[in-house]
């Protein structure tokens, strides 16, 4: 098994875990973490799958860095919303999914 295959498989596993969390978790913080897992898995896969020929390909690297920045800002906004919502309503779930 080459290192690239390992990366790709790990990425796929992370995507699966993240997807499960995004769908199954009710607590919004868990969902945000799941989103980040999913994103990391994708970036890992992109890095592995994008590597072609010999030597590193700069484009996927640049994409991943940009993607991480985007994911970070999205997570920050999501956490901000979550905190604001939790302060007002006292729970960290969506109203229709409250237990």
């Amino acid at each position: 098994m080459t290192a690239l295959t390992l990366y790709a498989l790990t990425g796929a596993a992370l995507i699966g875990l993240g997807l499960y969390g995004l769908i199954a978790a009710r607590h919004l913080l868990r969902r945000i973490v799941a989103f980040n897992l999913l994103g990391s898995g994708l970036f890992l896969y992109l890095g592995a799958a994008g590597a072609r020929g010999d030597g590193p390909d700069p484009v996927p690297q640049a994409l991943i860095i940009t993607g991480i920045v985007v994911a970070l800002s999205a997570s920050a906004l999501a956490v901000g919303l979550l905190v604001a919502g939790a302060r007002l309503s006292g729970r960290a779930t969506l109203p229709e999914e409250a237990e």
Binding site: F35, L42, Y45, G50, V59, A74
Partner: peptide, 18 residues
């Protein structure tokens, strides 16, 4: 969720065509 799905597609495209 939508962005990530889109991003997964983009990754596949890049992997296939560079």
């Amino acid at each position: 969720a939508g962005s990530l799905l889109y991003l997964a597609g983009v990754a596949l495209i890049y992997a296939a065509h560079g």
